[in-house]
Amino acid sequence: MQTPHTPLDTSMADDDTPLQNNPQDFGKSLHGCNHYRRRCKIRAPCCNQIFFCRHCHNEATSALTNPKERHEIVRHDVKQVICAICNTEQQVAHVCTNCGVKMGEYFCGICKFYDDDISKEQFHCHDCGICRVGGGAKFFHCQKCGSCYDVTLRDNHACVENSMKNHCPICYEFLFDSIKGATIMNCGHPMHMDCYKEMISQNQYRCPICSKAVCDMSRTWRRLDQEIEATAMPEEYRYEIPILCNDCNNTSKTSFHILGHKCSNCKSYNTRRIGTPNNSLEPQI
Rank of each mutant, 00 (worst) to 15 (best):
F139S: 02
T220W: 12
K165W: 10
D225F: 03
Y239L: 10
T183R: 02
T152Q: 01
I209N: 06
I228P: 03
K144S: 13
T231H: 09
I179P: 05
C171P: 02
H167C: 13
C207S: 04
F113E: 06
I184M: 05
C128N: 01
S163W: 01
Y237M: 15
M233D: 09
Y196D: 01
D127V: 03
T220E: 11
S211P: 00
I209T: 13
H167E: 12
G181L: 05
Y172G: 01
E161P: 02
K165D: 08
Y237A: 15
G146V: 06
Y237N: 15
S201L: 09
G146D: 06
E161R: 13
E161G: 04
H192T: 04
P190Q: 09
I130Y: 12
I170M: 15
M193W: 11
D194Y: 07
D150H: 07
I130G: 03
Y237F: 15
V133R: 13
K144Y: 07
Y239G: 07
N203V: 09
A158Q: 14
G134V: 04
P234T: 05
G136N: 11
C125Q: 03
Y196V: 02
K120V: 02
E198N: 13
E240R: 11
K197C: 10
Y237Q: 15
D127T: 08
I130D: 07
D225G: 03
Y237W: 14
Q204P: 01
C142I: 03
D115K: 08
I118T: 15
H167V: 12
R219C: 05
D150E: 08
V214C: 09
M199K: 08
I241A: 08
C207V: 07
P234M: 04
E240T: 12
H126L: 11
Q143N: 14
A158G: 02
F123T: 03
C187L: 07
C195M: 10
D216N: 15
F139P: 00
C142L: 07
D150S: 09
K165L: 07
R132A: 04
K212D: 08
C159A: 14
V151P: 00
I200E: 09
Y237K: 15
Y149D: 00
Q226C: 06
M193P: 00
S211Y: 09
A182Y: 02
L153F: 02
H192V: 05
E240M: 09
D150I: 00
E236D: 09
V151Q: 00
Q122H: 15
N186W: 06
C111V: 11
T220M: 14
R223T: 10
S119G: 06
K112Q: 13
G181T: 03
E161A: 13
H167P: 00
C128H: 02
Y205M: 08
